[in-house]
Design a protein around this nucleic acid. Structure first.
Lengths: 172, 172
DNA sequence: CGACGTTTGATATAATCAATAACAATTATC
DNA sequence: GATAATTGTTATTGATTATATCAAACGTCG
C-alpha cells in the first residue's frame, strides 16, 4: 500500500491513539518537529525571523529596516567609500543597492558625492541628520533589542552565540 | 561642515592614512564591520544564508530546497494532518503553501487525499517515492551538510548553538 | 430543519527581496 | 590610441511573503 486508498485508512494507520504515544508528542495539538529541531538551518531561519521582527519593533520610531541600519553603520565607520564597496561588504548586489540608497538619500540620511579622483564612482557620506538618526537607532538597538536578547541568553551565552555565527559566516 | 563640499574633502578627513589606524582595520581592503559584528541579527542572517547555500549544494542531486525538505520531514513524522496544520507549523501562510504542495505533488513526492470525516480538508501523505527521496535527503544532509557544521564548531558547540537558536525562536 | 458564522483549500494580487543582462560614462592596460 | 575593465544605473525576472476574497463544507444555535 503506497498511498492509502482512503483518507480514513491514512489517518488510521498513521496517527497513534492517545496513550499509545511513545514519543514526546503528548497530543497537545502541536506537531512533532522531529529531526527538524536538529536541523541547524531550520532553527537559524526561525531565530533570524524572530530577531528581525523584534529589531523592527524596537527601531520603529525611526523607520529603519535592519538592512538600512547596517548601511548607516557601515557608512559611519567607513567614510570615503563608494557604492560598490559598501554594497559588496553587506552582501548586497550593486543593482539592488541603487534603490536602497535612493531611499536613504531622499530622507537626507546620506548623500552621494562624485569622486574627484574617479569620476565614475560615488563617495557615500552620512549627513548630519543621518548621524543623528544613527545615534538614536544605536541606543534603541542596544537598550531595547540587544538588551532583551542578552537577558534571555545570558551575557556569556550571547557572546558565544555571536562568535559561532560569525565563524559560520566566515568559514563555512 | 555637514556634507563636505567635494568628495576629495570627504576622503581626506575621513579615511585615516595607513599607519595612523587605531583600530583593527590593517588596510587590507576589507571594510570595518565595527558594531555590525556585535549585532546578533546581522550575524544570524549571514550565517543563515551560508547554511542554506550549503544545504542546497549538498542536496542538489535530489533537487530539494530547505523548505521542501522540511515539508517532507514533517509529513513523515505527522501523518494524517491537513494543509493548514502542516503549513502553520512551518510558519508558511496557507495561500503560499498551495503552490508548494502542487510542486511536490507534481513530482509525486506527496499526495492530497480528501478526508472522509471533513470533506473540506486534504490529508497529506508521503508517497513511496517521497519516502525514498526523504531517506536519501536525510543521509545527504546528515553526512555532508550537518557533518561539516559539526566539524567546524565541534559537537558540543553545535549542540549549544542549536539550543540557543531554539530558545530564541521559542521565547524571544 | 435552516440561518449564520467559521474553517479549509484555493485564487488573485501586491510588496519585497534577490539575481542577471545590458548600457553609458569613465578609467586602466597595452 | 584601441581595447578591456569598472562604476553606477536601468530593466527585468524569479522567489518569497503578505492580504483579501471565494466556494465548499462544517458547526452552532434557535
Amino acid at each position: 500500500m503506497t498511498v492509502p486508498k482512503t483518507a480514513a485508512d491514512a489517518a488510521k494507520v498513521s496517527r497513534p491513539v492517545a496513550g499509545q504515544d511513545l514519543d514526546a508528542s503528548s497530543d497537545d495539538g502541536l506537531l512533532h518537529l522531529g529531526e527538524l529541531s536538529g536541523l541547524l538551518g531550520y532553527s537559524l531561519k526561525r531565530a533570524q525571523l524572530k530577531v528581525f521582527e523584534d529589531f523592527l519593533r524596537c527601531v520603529a520610531p525611526l523607520q529603519l529596516t535592519p538592512a538600512q541600519f547596517s548601511v548607516l553603520l557601515l557608512l559611519d565607520q567607513n567614510p570615503g567609500r563608494n557604492q560598490t564597496e559598501i554594497a559588496s561588504t553587506l552582501g548586497i548586489l550593486r543593482p539592488n543597492f541603487v534603490a536602497m540608497l535612493d531611499a536613504l538619500e531622499s530622507r537626507e540620511l546620506c548623500a552621494r558625492m562624485r569622486s574627484a579622483s574617479d569620476r565614475r564612482s560615488h563617495i557615500l557620506v552620512l549627513t548630519d541628520k543621518g548621524r543623528a538618526v544613527l545615534a538614536r537607532a544605536k541606543k534603541l538597538v542596544a537598550n531595547k533589542h540587544e538588551a532583551r536578547l542578552i537577558e534571555l541568553l545570558g551575557p556569556e551565552n550571547h557572546a558565544a552565540l555571536l562568535e559561532m555565527l560569525a565563524k559560520i559566516a566566515r568559514e563555512f
